[in-house]
Structure formats: structure tokens, C-alpha cells
Amino acid sequence: MTTLIQEEPVSQPLTAGTSLRVQEDAPRDLHLEGEATTDMARVPPRKTFSRLITLPSSSKKPRYLQEKEWLGMVTAVDEVGFTARLKDYQGGPDLETSFLFEEIPQEDLDLVQPGSEFYWSLGYRIEPNGQRLRYSLVHFRRLPKWTAQKLTEARQRARDTLRALDSELDGTT
């Protein structure tokens, strides 16, 4: 957890201009690096900030013991749920199965459309007190939607490529 101390007391919330610094003995998980490395094992040296920073320690979180994971693609939707084709990340055979809408986060329901993709994982969730709970987690992939302008640009590029290929086949320039 990040341990930071304030140089001057401030009332929350912390904002730019607040004077804080990283405590010298702070643990290393805040990588405020100057070193240009993508390698997490080589933790860069700590850096002192002249202004600002944060905050509270996070409570202990559950741990997941994942047993299986699939990439799913919705193939059909009906009144109560949907059917999906599943690709096993561990190399097992593809499967087809059905899900009820009640298994999906309510905010994800508008993502449930034929062709949309999701991750489905099964395993144990281990609570900080050691209790194990079986879990089934469905997470619909959220990538930025294609805008009308992007689609128009993509269609134009496809047309240009096709025209170039036709010209090449015709032997013209």
C-alpha cells in the first residue's frame, strides 16, 4: 500500500497544489519512476514530489483461484437469456451453452447482442478470512464503439484498396 505523508495538513479532498511527499520508507508499490522500464521486477527508485499526493490504505482483498476461463461469443438472444459459443483458453474443445440474463450484471445487458464477446471464468474466490466461495464471473468486453465517422473512413479505405487491387489486376496504374 502506498504510504504518503502530507507536508501541510489539508482538508480532503486532496487536489493539485496540496503539498505532500512520498515517505522515505514507503513500500515500493507506487512506481513513481524516472527509469524507463516496462519491467515490474526492476522497481525504479522512489521519487519525491514537490507537490501533492495521496492516500488511504486499501483493505485486504479477496483472492481468486481460477479453474477455467473461456472466451464467449453471443450467438442468439431470446427473452430470458442468450446462447454463446465458448473457446477454452486451456485448449479444451469449443462448447456452446446458455446463460440467463440474471447471471449478467444489469448494466451489461445492453451489451448482450449477437456477435458480442465476453469472458467467463469459474473458480474459487478466497475471502480474507479464508472462506472459499465458488464463483462464476461473466465479463462482457467493452471496447470503444465505432463512430459513424470511423465507419465512413474504414469503408473509404476498403474502397481505395479494392480499387488499387483492381487496377493491379488490370495491369493499369
Partner: peptide, 13 residues
């Protein structure tokens, strides 16, 4: 939890 939002660093849990 926005643990830190600042022009130089942002940390969100």
C-alpha cells in the same frame, strides 16, 4: 477510489 489525481500522477483503485 481515486487515490490520487494530480497533473503529474493519477492512481485509481
Amino acid at each position: 477510489k481515486s487515490e490520487l489525481i494530480h497533473p503529474d500522477v493519477a492512481q485509481i483503485d
